[in-house]
C-alpha cells in the first residue's frame, strides 16, 4: 500500500433513515475532489450506498471503514446484526427480508446486494447468523 493512502471511519446509526446515505455521500465528495475517474466514483458510491442502507434496514447500523490509495478503494462495512442465513439467496435480484414498514419507505426492493455485486470489482461477504456481517467492497481505479 502506498504511503499516501487515506483512511476514513464512519459510524452508521441504526433505524435512522434521515441519516442513511450520509457516509456514502461523504465518500463520494472525497473521491470527486481526488479527481478520480467518474465511472470509478459512480461504482463506489452506488455500492457503498446500498451497503450503508442495508446496515440501517437489517442490522441496526454499524461501522464503515474506507481506505483509498492510488490503486483501489476498499470499504469494509461491519455490523452486529442478525447475519445472512443464505448468502446465495440474498444475492438474487428482488429477494428481500425487509419489513412492510421499510418497503413503505421505498427501500427493501431486494436489489441491495445484487447492485453491490454489479457495481463493485470485488465483493466479499463474511456472515454468521446471530453474530453479524462484514461486507468488503473493492473498486479499482481505472487507469
Amino acid at each position: 500500500m502506498s504511503s499516501n493512502s487515506l483512511h476514513y471511519h464512519y459510524v452508521v446509526p441504526g433505524d435512522d433513515f434521515t441519516q442513511a446515505g450520509k457516509a456514502s455521500s461523504a465518500v463520494k465528495q472525497i473521491l470527486k475532489q481526488l479527481g478520480f475517474n467518474p465511472q470509478t466514483i459512480r461504482k463506489m458510491s452506488i455500492s457503498l450506498y446500498e451497503g450503508e442502507i442495508n446496515m440501517v434496514i437489517h442490522a441496526g447500523g454499524g461501522e464503515i471503514d474506507v481506505d483509498i490509495d492510488d490503486e483501489k478503494i476498499t470499504a469494509v462495512l461491519t455490523d452486529r446484526g442478525p447475519g445472512i442465513e443464505d448468502v446465495e439467496l440474498a444475492m438474487q435480484d428482488g429477494w428481500s427480508t425487509a419489513s412492510e414498514q421499510v418497503r413503505g419507505l421505498g427501500f427493501g426492493a431486494g436489489m441491495g446486494l445484487p447492485n453491490m455485486k454489479k457495481y463493485s470489482d470485488e465483493l466479499k461477504i463474511d456472515t454468521e447468523v446471530g453474530k453479524g456481517t462484514t461486507v468488503t467492497i473493492v473498486v479499482k481505479l481505472a487507469s
Binding site: 499516501n4 493512502s5 481526488l34
Partner: peptide, 15 residues
C-alpha cells in the same frame, strides 16, 4: 473541483 489530475498527487494533497 478536483485537486490534481494525478491520483498520486491528489491523495498526497488530500492528506
Amino acid at each position: 473541483m478536483r485537486l490534481d489530475p494525478l491520483p498520486q498527487h491528489s491523495l498526497k494533497m488530500m492528506k
